[in-house]
Nucleic acid binder design. Structure first.
Lengths: 209, 209
DNA sequence: AGCAGAACATGAGTACTCCTCGCCTTATCT
DNA sequence: AGATAAGGCGAGGAGTACTCATGTTCTGCT
């Protein structure tokens, strides 16, 4: 079991190339889609020889994994910032924030609609699990979000007779659903179907209440 | 825009081969996964030369599409039968039936865990939409299920002051979620994590109520 | 029965793809 | 300055998806 990258660059020039490869990959994903992606074209776009690409990434899967990792980092950053700024006091408002940030990234970040946080070529056989060893990708996302929501989830548990049975599980499930619905929203409408986005928020609120 | 098959066999021998190709494809999916699948190996398994495979299917995508189509047909059949047998009177019980049938197929039908009803290489670029021209795969499923659930959904609308806003949309969303959660359940546990399966039912009941 | 045309069968070959590996250059450290 | 590590490179090996020209078998029709 290995990471999504083979060798992380340490010198400045190669670090730039590393990022350029990821950027080109993301752009190409938007243009030709997942199955149309080729390492050769990514390398050409990034203006690096093919060998250099394979210095950093173990292959096309790893490349996508690294992109997903970057996306997740980006997302958690943005969400943390907003949570800190707005200090939501209910699960409902937190949900809205999270959905909005996801939508914003979908619109702004190249390739995000295709790779998301790592749900492309779901390989169960012997391939690497991109973000984490044991957990699958969205579970990794759930873990990262846990610190942001666990407080609120516990605080809102107003009825001590019926405590929330398993908040971690609920978060995990909610995430999976949100991912699915929002993907659908962007499949339906390139800008994200507003009706579906609203419905996503509604479902999450109802479920997590 | 084309169907998932290129030429549908009419003579008996070739019809057997057609089915054998799909069966081999399904088996192989379980063994080597989506990215490990090759047309050559499918053909070898099915004991047909490679050219014959391409007589029927426009390529690997089409092959998977045809498999998904068959799965959907199979699923709708099973569910219709159970609905007719048990005559559920509440949305909740109908949900349970649907989830149980889905789980049963996951356990019994080779390849079902990988292709589902068609959510593998989601191609947005220029590839065929497997089950339908305009809608995506799960939307096609939703349409097929609509006749089974529309009656119940309307009948349970007990509060005329707040009618259910858009039952078709709700079904569409519910389906997307169910698919996501149940896939997760089978990723976690080869037999389908019972906790997640139960949670899936719970979410659907809450959401559709 | 004889025949036209449709359906079916075949696999070598073309045009890709991913990825490796040996050899080279440049940077960093002591 | 010398040694060690990091970075750079692209032709080519191994393997894939898919085509197509050529041949065979079936089916319906007169």
């Amino acid at each position: 079991m290995q990471s999504a990258v083979r060798r992380r660059p340490v010198q400045r020039r190669s670090l730039e190339r590393f990022e350029r490869i990821l950027d080109s990959c993301a752009e190409l994903l938007d243009e030709v889609g997942y199955t149309g992606l080729t390492t050769k074209e990514v390398a050409r776009r990034a203006q690096v020889p093919i060998g250099t690409l394979y210095q950093f990434f173990p292959g096309i899967e790893g490349l996508l994994g690294a992109l997903a990792e970057r996306n997740l980092e980006h997302f958690v950053d943005r969400l943390s910032r907003r949570v800190e700024a707005e200090q939501p006091t209910h699960v409902g408002t937190l949900v809205d924030l999270a959905v909005e940030e996801y939508v914003a990234m979908h619109r702004a970040v190249p390739g995000f609609g295709v790779v998301d946080f790592g749900a492309v070529g779901v390989e169960d056989h012997d391939s690497i699990h991109l973000l984490d060893d044991v957990l699958d990708n969205n579970s990794a996302v759930a873990e990262r979000l846990w610190t942001l929501v666990s407080g609120l989830l516990a605080a809102e548990d107003t009825d001590p007779a019926h405590p929330r049975p398993n908040p971690r599980l609920a978060l995990r499930v909610a995430l999976e659903c949100a991912d699915a619905i929002l993907r659908l929203a962007f499949r339906t409408d390139p800008d994200g179907d507003p009706v579906l986005i609203a419905e996503c928020k509604r479902l999450l609120r109802v479920y997590l209440a």
